[in-house]
């Protein structure tokens, strides 16, 4: 067991965790503010990956530049989805909210299958194909450490985005309004906050964030109509583990799950890594049901009254 290997595993794990965190922030925002569990979040990620793929394929647009298009596009998609599907379910029983978002996920998945077929599509960027080699650091007794560029870019942008987003929520007026609404909806209403607008913006921002995640992930992963399903389970683990609604929690939990996954994949065996991180997940929830950074009681799905017109 060389120290090089441990460092390599930690780096691989953190980079993977960055991707998990990145794809989960939007989900935790939507949950935190609106108390809606968006089961279609994985499918929005899939759509975002397809948008970047097609822009690359037809317009030869670099996936990182395609964000300029997908950010406004997904903001609009978010607003429309909220207005058409989600708004009516605010205040409805939790079951009907679940049916709406699950139904949405099935519809999006099948539309993708219909329009783009089940082919596996990839974007290969020549400038990303060679990894970054660090070292060797003979002073530390380390050999070469290999870092994947696309994962590093996703990690750096993902973490910067999370920090920016955190600052926005903490210090900007709109951020404060959103937080106020998520903490106590009724009081916020009494203070003259337009709840409907806050919900629209929060949902649209959640979808926008997953739009960015899609663009950052297309150079790494293959896109196909079922790719959302591969990520959605892990997104939920990250969100619940971090504390529903907590951005810091999502980042920490994402990195944690990434490292656990890579380490257990190496030491215990690749077939058992899911079992390992679910065990860790359950253990954390037993000790702290609201998640690592969740506020107490946040995990309870309170019922919200319908928004008045």
């Amino acid at each position: 067991m060389s120290s090089t290997l441990v460092v390599q595993l930690v780096i691989s794990g953190i980079l993977l965790g960055g991707i998990y965190a990145l794809s989960s922030i939007g989900l935790t925002l939507i949950f935190g503010v609106m108390k809606i569990v968006n089961f279609a979040h994985g499918e929005f990620l899939m759509l975002a990956m397809y948008v970047s793929f097609w822009l690359f394929h037809w317009a030869h647009l670099d996936p990182y530049l395609s964000m300029l298009i997908s950010v406004p596009l997904f903001f609009i998609i978010g607003i429309l989805t909220y207005k058409v599907f989600i708004k009516k379910t605010i205040g409805a029983p939790i079951l009907s909210q679940i049916f709406v978002t699950v139904g949405l996920s099935i519809i999006i998945e099948n539309l993708a299958l219909l329009f783009w077929s089940a082919d596996f599509r990839t974007v290969s960027l020549s400038y990303l194909s060679r990894p970054i080699i660090l070292g060797p650091f003979s002073g530390l007794g380390l050999e070469e450490i290999i870092v994947n560029k696309a994962r590093l870019i996703a990690f750096i942008l993902g973490i910067s985005l999370s920090i920016a987003f955190y600052l926005f929520m903490r210090f900007s007026y709109l951020g404060k309004v959103i937080r106020a609404t998520s903490q106590d909806r009724t009081t916020a209403l009494l203070m003259g906050i337009n709840i409907d607008r806050v919900y629209t913006i929060s949902f649209a921002m959640g979808i926008l964030l997953v739009g960015i995640a899609g663009a950052l992930m297309i150079p790494i992963y293959t896109v196909h109509p079922f790719v959302g399903f591969e990520f959605v389970l892990i997104m939920f683990v990250v969100v619940v583990l971090g504390g529903m609604g907590s951005i810091v929690g999502a980042v920490v939990a994402g990195l944690f799950i990434g490292v656990v996954e890579v380490f257990s994949g190496f030491f215990i065996g690749p077939e058992s890594k899911q079992a390992v991180y679910f065990l860790v997940f359950i253990a954390v929830l037993v000790l702290k049901p609201s998640g690592l950074f969740g506020e107490k009681g946040e995990e309870e799905l309170e019922r919200i009254e319908a928004i008045g017109e």
């Binding site: 290997l5 390599q8 595993l9 691989s12 993977l16 991707i19 992963y221 399903f229 591969e230 990520f231 892990i234 990434g258 996954e261 890579v262 380490f263 257990s264 994949g265 190496f266 065996g269 690749p270 077939e271 890594k273 899911q274």
Partner: peptide, 14 residues
Amino acid sequence: SYSAKATDLSGLVL
């Protein structure tokens, strides 16, 4: 062995 839905195989490769 590993799950075909895996999002990362670096542990396996290492």
